[in-house]
Amino acid sequence: MVELEILEALDGLQWLRSGEEVARRFGISQPTVSRSCRKALDTFELTMERIDGEWELVGDATFLQLEREVHQMARWLGHRPLRLEATYWSAPSLNQVLPHDYLLGLSNIVGVKRNFQLLRERIVDFWIAGLPDLPTDNEPELTAVVLSRMPVFFTCAPDHPLASQEQLTYDDIAAYPTLALRQGDYPEVEQALKAIGLWSDGSRMTRYRRDRWEGRAESELVIGYGTPLSLQVAGGNLVQLPLQLPFESGEALVFRKEFALHPRVKELLEHLSTWLQQLATEIPEIKVTLQQPVSFTYAQTE
């Protein structure tokens, strides 16, 4: 019902939030973004509202969703790049190896909900998610392939009282405020940390900002969490404490089940495997679970 570039503007705003980013990622001018977006909204008889910083559609989006399905099919057929969202710690190195027919988003979305929504609504084709929070039975349309694993440990500022301790228990950590996000952002992480009395000091953040995460651990004596990869990307002068969290993190590729057997999934998995093998040589704590040549089963998360 609308041209690819028209819906791109609307989807782009939902995904990347600002006209500036849409213009940059899709190679069009900002006036074109807003003109195209308006045309898409008019065609589908919708309006758009900013709620909590995210653009939400108002109205009956039935036909928009039907049309998105066609446009997604067009992307998978190669008419346009496939859209990929990642974690803030994976995006910088991933961006260097990603083939040109993939478009990487800002990779700063906090919480699984928005990412699942973008996949469900066919705005984004892939999400490189951080373990352990993967699609559950509540997301029957989505599936995941686990790519790698890595430990998660506690972090703090160098002058924090715990920084000098050689041995730590969860009780030691629980004596201090610990970073937390909004309820439900990462259900698995939240549950695991609450079980040991952590996850107490909430940060209201819908898109990742270093000053509100690693920055707070640095400046406010709050205990944070990190992985070898996140510390490399955004750790600054945070100290890694000698205690690991009771779960592992790592990367997983999340996408709609209907594409499970699509050649482009296989192709992307091969790229991701190469990328992670490379990372693993630099950071030995990263264990690549997806070996090359790619021969995996989708049963991993089912």
């Binding site: 019902m1 036909f63 039907l66 049309e67 399905e69 066609v70 099919m73 067009a74």
Partner: peptide
């Protein structure tokens, strides 16, 4: 013509 067919379904419904 799979893509055309898919688009046509949307137009028909519309």
């Amino acid at each position: 013509h799979a893509l055309l067919d898919a688009e046509r379904r949307v137009h028909q419904r519309y």
